[in-house]
Amino acid sequence: MLAYLLRRSLYAIPILIGVNLITFALFFVVNSPDDMARMQLGVKRVTPEAIAKWKVERGYDKPLFFNAQAEGVGVLTDTILFAKSARMFVGDFGRAEDGRDIAREITTRMGPSLAIALPTFILGLYVTVSFALLLTFFRGSYLDIWGVVLCVALMSISGLFYIIGGQFLISKLWRLVPISGYSGGLDAWKFLILPVLIGVISGIGSSARWYRTIFLEEIGRDYVRTARAKGLSEVAVLFRHVLRNAMIPILTGVVVVIPLLFMGSLLTESFFGIPGLGSYTIDAINAQDFAVVRAMVFIGSVLYIAGLMLTDISYTFVDPRIRFE
């Protein structure tokens, strides 16, 4: 088992390098820093001097791969590849357009993001799995049929409408909670409750339907027939046998997103004015702040890969075949 986990973690290294190279290529090879400067400065102010100044300010004036003028290791380190891409491995993301340190900004914004994403994730998982189990228990009945219809309808609504509708109904019409905003400390709950609720509801449709398919697939298996032949009740069959086997495919989709919770949600945060990483990213996109977007792409991939490894670890808990290999 240890060898299995170790092998999986070793596999992450080439992937991380690949991600790093892809982001580098996207940001510096597809367009030259000159193009970016022209775009940022706008047509009126474009002069060769302005471009040069813009590049120097951001450290984009170095060569891409090899610096023939530098000495020693500088040939490799005094380049954009090293300074802007490779240094991200050690958490150095550089500065945003407004001059702030990106790494520090990220650490302070993680909290609010997590405050919404984590409850949404846990509550959402609980609600969807329970709903799917309910549908599975009453499979073939009208409850099941209409439940699936509801799921399909729910998943046909754009996430934007959930947020707009929720804000309109609960905050504007009923005035139950503030429409947006955030505060640290304990009274944050009144800002969090609506986004969490909306996050849970908007996820029900597709997840519950998917889990139901998994449960139904498991229910058709031979061991379920054996369990019924033992005289177990349908509830015992569902919880003791089906749920535990269905956990294996469910975990594949679920565990991988846990680290990504740190990244927050773009839509929710921007609509509710939560100062998290999601709104940070959106602001950066709108302001065309390349350094921040680059940093977020890299962090997102690192978290995803961490999620893959978490998935591998979680398999060893639910699947004895891997645990004992």
């Binding site: 061991y223 033992k230 005289g231 003791r240 535990r244 294996i248």
Partner: peptide
């Protein structure tokens, strides 16, 4: 089921719960 009358099946490989 399982008390008065019990049953064994053709495929032992799939008839047992793999994670129990």
């Amino acid at each position: 089921r399982g008390g008065g009358m019990a049953m064994i099946f053709q495929e032992p490989a799939t008839s047992l719960n793999p994670v129990m």
